[in-house]
Design a protein around this nucleic acid. Structure first.
Lengths: 227, 227
DNA sequence: TTATTTTGTTAATGTTAAGTTAATTTAGAT
DNA sequence: ATCTAAATTAACTTAACATTAACAAAATAA
């Protein structure tokens, strides 16, 4: 792997910041902190973190507002954002706001749960440049991560998990060839070992569903998405 | 953002009015004051505030009565109303009154808490016409968070807490897929560990009660609400 | 209080979609 | 022509969810 992954913590409570910071640093993340929304935006701009963990309840500028602010910054469009919510909070409000959060984590926080959540989140983020906000590939294919559907010429198509992720990966950078190795690593996960033909079959099913001409085979190398 | 938001403060104690007024003005709100219920109604009619903060304990016409009066005025149907209650007050009494209050704020008041509460309140208010809790999902399902009741095609259905919260969460953003993890965290809480099939069972019961077609399973990911 | 009902959770089992493999065919490279 | 990589299809395996009933724990009523 390349460089250390950066996480920005935003909370007004010092002890929570310390607690989280400690646990995340122990896991090898590079941790930045901010005490309020404004600071968060400043820091985020500077370091472009891979993940931002935002407390919802903060005086002055709360998590939701901060999130909005962050999302308006072009460089931060693709950053993962997770909300920290207190128990009993009216989460429907939070979740409902179309603010582009990627995860919601409840207090009290259990370090192990947190870490595994974060890993999952960051995993999703890697490899893809535009993991978050849906991307419209001008060929008429739209990938909606939030709703887990793709749209072809306005028609929704439901894809199973692996197929969806495979397509999302390929389409994340149209034209780029993804080797079978890379695909296995990113879609299946580094440790899982599956047979050599598995990818082919998934490609087959995808082509069946979205049309034959989107995924192109580069013999001896891998596949690429084109339109 | 467009125009400045208006807040009406109603209290018989001058120092509280001043204290609140000062803090709210500092935040950029346009503040109006009234010393009693009658005055409150007059002023409210004139300025149509976005939020009214009402002290419960007032001589002559108390907060509850005032609130009733306010709610009878058509133009004020959608205004947010928050009650100011003293700490030891039996506010179950107040909350019980189906008077259409949107929040309860406890004295003594901490400015920061107050501000963030107010912001949350006003945010809830904007965008929606129905000031109150309910959210109508065009599929014919209405969720009344205050009474823990949902309405399907005008028929009230009583849901137990967990079922209600699960539905409320899913319906808070129709279409969006909520992972089992997120559901567990937000509905059950980060620390509580429940078995793996618990969510399924609740989903089952919900589907039984509201119909099979509202909640959709995304295998390997989670569930989403759709209509 | 004790009884009764409602709610929440678990455990056991069934079902199905998703994922994988294997066998065979086709196409591309050298 | 020969070798290798990929396509294709169907068979198979597994993981994920559905379903039901049983149980426990709250809440409510008597």
């Amino acid at each position: 792997m390349s460089t250390e992954q950066k996480i920005l913590l935003v909370d007004d409570e010092q002890d929570i910041l310390e607690f989280l910071s400690y646990n995340l640093k122990k896991e090898g993340y590079s941790v930045f902190i901010a005490n309020n929304g404004k600071e968060a935006i400043t820091v985020a701009k500077k370091v472009t973190p891979d993940l931002i963990i935002l407390d919802v309840m903060m005086p002055d500028m709360d998590g939701i507002e901060t999130c909005r602010g962050l999302r308006e910054i072009p460089e931060l469009k693709n950053v993962m954002i997770a909300f920290l919510t207190a128990r009993n909070e009216d989460y429907s409000q939070i979740a409902g706001f179309d603010v582009g959060a990627d995860d919601y984590i409840n207090k009290p926080i259990k370090p192990r749960v947190l870490i595994s959540r974060i890993k999952a989140l960051l995993r999703r983020g890697t490899g893809t440049e535009s993991n978050k906000t849906d991307k419209v590939d001008t060929g008429g294919i739209k990938i909606d991560r939030e709703r887990y559907v793709i749209e072809k010429n306005g028609v929704e198509i439901n894809l199973p998990k692996k197929e969806f992720e495979l397509l999302a990966l390929l389409a994340s950078k149209p034209g780029k060839v993804f080797t079978r190795e890379v695909i296995l690593d990113l879609v299946w996960g580094g440790d899982v070992v599956v047979g050599d033909r598995t990818i082919d079959v998934h490609i087959r099913k995808l082509r069946e569903k979205i049309g034959e001409d989107f995924i192109k085979t580069i013999k001896g190398i891998g596949y690429k998405f084109e339109f």
